[in-house]
Write a protein that binds this DNA or RNA. Structure first.
Lengths: 230, 230
DNA sequence: ATCCCTCTTTGCGGCCGGTCAAAGTCGCGT
DNA sequence: ACGCGACTTTGACCGGCCGCAAAGAGGGAT
């Protein structure tokens, strides 16, 4: 199925790319519309395609050797994902599940090398994308090393609100269904502790909770918890 | 100063690269020999160069807002590092300190885009390098989320032995000076706990400690601690 | 409307591991 | 050789967070 280039031309990933090259690239792509709960790929499966999220929201999670589920990250619109080949891996390291109705573009993984080699501008952009993801990972590592649980959860909630927030009434609503368990997996704690924290914050008017819902009412107040003044 | 291409041609980073292109690349490089304690760049400083470690060993650390020192990773020979531009950052996110006498190659950061765009093969390899680093970061994140301290430290020590080990007598000696504090920073714990663990392991004949020294005597035994059989 | 499944809340006990404190030891520099 | 600074070890204490358990609450499906 052909894709209108105007849909993707303004993505940071394709910025400054030659329109003709972008056309050629898009000619090889496949588009799919997917519904909540659908799996795009599963952990350990052979990596046959790489993807771009055009619209919607995905959750990427991993299961540890002993069976614990950990949510690794959220995929936002415009993000490249599932490019296992870039990591020189034959399989997908995690499972990508659709959180809200999404539109996903994919290419055969065998195209990866040629795509990168023939589109130097895209290579630079893709590297920046991966680099930023590495940066985020390091930030989270540092948080996990040095911060107590409350601050970590506050940071995670603020990041979610920033990346996936939608203004709604007096606050910023996180725009896809997310469970306490998900937040726990992202911050290295248990759903019990997250629940307790959110309840406490709700009591202070900082957030408003609900089933798979979360709205930040007082981002500044949360930020004070995340980074206390010395 | 010119560099003999034979020194770098076999690095994975430059594999399959056109020799002429590699020559051009190396013509723009600078080589420096550095001594333990020297700083290659400091956290927050403007990123003016990117680097390749030819020989030796470096420690990259970050200081958190509240002043705690965290060792982010170890740079091994053949590793590209300090390529802040790839992360679209103007500054270095950490401080790189020389652990043992090292040989470092550097390029002006302004070359980064052209280097990547004109050396598609290098772009693919560099992306794999970054990708693998991202993979490692995710592994550590997962460990930090789900494993108790003892397992994390065991994993970290095994990784160090694998990446920077030198056979010595009955064991594998970690080939650069490393403190308990360093290991603590890599695993998100305190030097006290690391010291206690290493002492206990030494009592069981798994490792042999010493001032800034560490030798793994029984890697299998350690592996059993890192990943207990269910 | 009702059932049922999943997600959420809340209480309580226990323990891992962080914090504080102090002594011990190695090795470098002068 | 000596002294000092940096690194390490060890003990005692205690608090934050996890684990377990059980009840409560939405929301989708029939």
């Amino acid at each position: 199925m052909a894709i209108d280039i105007s849909l993707v031309r303004n993505l940071p990933l394709f910025r400054q790319m030659d329109p003709a090259a972008l056309s050629r690239l898009m000619a090889r792509a496949t588009v799919r519309r997917m519904l909540p709960g659908d799996l795009i790929f599963e952990q350990g499966a052979e990596a046959t395609s790489f993807f771009l999220l055009l619209h919607g929201r995905l959750k990427v999670s991993q299961v540890t050797a002993d069976g614990q589920q950990v949510m690794v990250r959220v995929v936002h619109p415009g993000d490249l994902f599932g490019f296992a080949r870039a990591l020189a891996r034959p399989d997908y390291p995690g499972t990508a599940q659709v959180a809200v109705e999404s539109i996903v573009v994919s290419w055969p993984m065998t195209d990866w090398e040629t795509v990168v080699e023939n589109n130097p501008r895209l290579a630079v952009n893709a590297m920046q994308t991966i680099g930023q993801r590495l940066d985020e990972a390091h930030t989270r590592l540092r948080e996990m090393s040095t911060e107590e649980v409350e601050r970590r959860v506050a940071h995670a909630v603020l990041r979610l609100a920033e990346k996936a927030g939608r203004i709604e009434g007096g606050g910023t609503r996180i725009d896809f269904p997310i469970t306490r368990q998900d937040i726990a997996g992202m911050t290295g704690t248990t759903l019990h502790t997250v629940s307790r924290l959110l309840s406490a914050w709700e009591g202070q008017g900082l957030v408003e909770g609900g089933r798979q819902k979360l709205t930040v009412l007082d981002a500044e107040g949360l930020a004070r918890i995340a980074d206390p003044e010395p």
